[in-house]
């Protein structure tokens, strides 16, 4: 039997009817056609499905849909600014060549967003720690770390 969940998605209140076995990633991709969030392994290993729930990065492939009621979810679609302009964080990934195939990118960016929201001046060690749960098959991570440092710098200048 379908049950209704009400939650805040990228700042907008939404209502979706879901089945017991569905996961947050199913709600996003199937019910709401928000395909920015990717599914890689489906078992918590790769981080491609990372979104932020109530301020914390989680794997949406392991998150039961019915648990999302009353919570606040941020996905990659919620990061862009007015007129579809990229956020500082997204722009830094583009500028630093931190994206190749792009499959890991939305998850990477959400993990970094969770980091920078709680720690605006992370050390390299802290950046690496925050990205432990995000795999990238393409870039070799170096450009990603550079992008995070650049984004942190730009965000501090803006604030």
């Amino acid at each position: 039997m379908k049950k209704e969940i009400l939650f805040s998605l990228n700042g907008i209140e939404v209502s979706v009817f879901v089945l017991g076995h569905e996961r947050l990633i199913d709600v996003l991709r199937k019910h709401l056609s928000l395909t920015g969030t990717k599914e890689g392994c489906g078992q918590g290993e790769c981080g491609a499905c990372t979104v932020i729930v109530d301020g914390r990065a989680v794997n949406s492939c392991l998150y039961p849909a019915l648990e999302i009621s009353g919570k606040s979810v941020l996905t990659i679609e919620g990061l862009q600014g007015p007129e579809h302009r990229l956020s500082v964080l997204q722009q830094a990934f583009v500028d630093c060549g931190a994206i190749q195939c792009g499959y890991c990118t939305p998850g990477m960016i959400l993990s970094v967003k969770a980091l920078l929201d709680s720690n605006p001046k992370p050390t390299e060690e802290e950046i690496r720690e925050a990205l432990q749960g995000n795999l990238c098959r393409c870039t070799g991570y170096v450009q990603i770390i550079t992008a995070v440092k650049q984004a942190a710098r730009h965000l501090l200048e803006l604030s």
């Binding site: 914390r56 989680v58 993990s111 720690e129 925050a130 432990q132 995000n134």
Partner: peptide, 9 residues
């Protein structure tokens, strides 16, 4: 334990 995403839940 695991990654930040795992530790958070």
């Amino acid at each position: 334990v695991g990654s930040p995403q795992i530790r958070n839940v």
